[in-house]
Amino acid sequence: MPIKIPDDLPACAALQAEGVVIMRETDAVRQDIRPLRFGLLNLMPDKIRTETQIARLLGATPLQVELSLIRITNHVPRNTSTDHMGAFYRAWEDVRRETFDGFIVTGAPVEKMPFEEVSYWDELCAVFDWTQSHVHSCLNICWAAQAAVHHFHGVPKHILPAKAFGVYRHRNLAPASPYLRGFSDDFSIPVSRWTEVRREDLPPDGGLRVLMDSPEIGLCLLEDPAHRSLHMFNHIEYDSDTLRNEYVRDAAKDETTALPHGYFPDDDPTRPPENRWRSHAHLLFANWINQIYQTTPFDIARIGQADAA
């Protein structure tokens, strides 16, 4: 089945060109089935690119998915037009009485700041608490994953001596997990962060389970059953050229910027990078969506009530 997104969202054209099946809102209303409702709280600077990345992965499922784009209520993004935000995004304050089968919170370019100094930290904490009664399952990515683990478990983040930047090999530590069904024993995932969460800081009584890690750059994916969440510290959703764009941006500011690890063939930035993580990105999202489909209440109004029970 296709993904349902707003008719004029810029991601539509890009996804259709890739063969992703798009369902227009005007067509979706004619189908007598309940789509899975997903919310995307998009904190990334390039919101249009992030929308496309997430919609691509949600749209690969055989289930019908309805995606709602959500923003922090009083935060004005600097890198996306007000017309785009006004046309396609709703403030969290306007959706907080709604329920969602799945909810995604992205990373944000604030990871070097203490959590409490981020201008929208209080609202983000309120969002995390709200997910416990209005969302069946959450996926927090990169900085949002660090923020959620800090909020729910008091786990600190640590600033790295140099940016973890590139494509790194990871290990499947839980082959029997429904979220890693079909995963290889090892695989590659893009990484782009200045901070990390360390295994030794995880509370022994918190119920957190490490599903993926990397010998080189540490934790990658945590399962948090008590909060019905997955915490992904890296960027499995990235496009083939996302790290290249980040490298070009950073190198323009600082010519000593290091090449992303394991990304360009033979470390030659003039050669196009090879995507070695695409299939595992689709697999992770498909497994997560399938797990939601198997366990979410058919009556969406019972989300939160049924989860609490």
Results as ranks from 00 to 15, higher is better:
L243Q: 06
P272Y: 03
L222D: 05
D299E: 11
R271N: 01
T257K: 08
D266S: 14
D186R: 06
Q291W: 13
G166P: 06
F285G: 01
P272S: 09
F285N: 02
H280L: 10
R278P: 00
A164S: 15
G304Q: 00
S184A: 12
D239H: 02
T270P: 03
R302H: 13
L284E: 00
R249A: 09
Y179I: 01
N245V: 09
A174G: 02
E274W: 08
L180H: 05
I289E: 07
T296H: 01
W288F: 08
R302V: 10
A306H: 01
P269S: 05
R198A: 10
G218N: 11
P215W: 03
N172I: 05
P161A: 08
S279Y: 13
P203D: 10
L173D: 04
R171I: 00
M232E: 12
L284D: 02
I300D: 14
S240K: 13
N234I: 08
Y168D: 02
T257I: 13
N172R: 05
D239F: 00
G166L: 06
L180S: 07
N275S: 14
A251Y: 11
D241K: 01
A252S: 15
L243Y: 12
F187W: 10
G304H: 09
A306G: 00
A162S: 15
R169K: 12
A251H: 12
A281C: 00
F285P: 00
L173M: 11
M232K: 10
T257W: 07
D254I: 05
D267V: 00
T296V: 13
D205T: 12
H170G: 04
H261C: 11
V210D: 08
A286G: 15
A258Q: 15
G206M: 05
Y263N: 06
F298M: 14
L219T: 02
A286Q: 13
G262P: 10
H235Y: 03
G262S: 05
S229H: 03
S188M: 14
T296W: 01
A306I: 00
I189C: 07
G182M: 01
P178G: 08
I292M: 01
I236T: 02
Y238K: 07
I292H: 00
L230S: 03
L284Y: 03
T296D: 05
G207D: 08
L208Q: 00
P203A: 03
A281M: 04
A176P: 05
T242D: 14
T256D: 14
D250S: 12
Y179Q: 01
P175E: 09
L283H: 04
R181K: 10
V167W: 02
I189W: 09
W288C: 06
L222Q: 03
W194D: 13
T270K: 13
F285D: 04
S279A: 15
A164N: 12
G304F: 02
T256I: 11
P265K: 01
A258H: 14
A301H: 12
S279E: 13
S192I: 04
L173P: 02
N245G: 08
G262L: 08
V210M: 03
L283M: 10
S177V: 07
P175Q: 09
Y238T: 07
H227M: 13
E255K: 15
P204L: 10
F183D: 01
F264I: 04
Q305F: 10
V210Q: 04
Y293W: 09
H282D: 13
N234W: 14
P260N: 07
E255I: 12
D241T: 07
N234F: 15
V191K: 09
F285R: 07
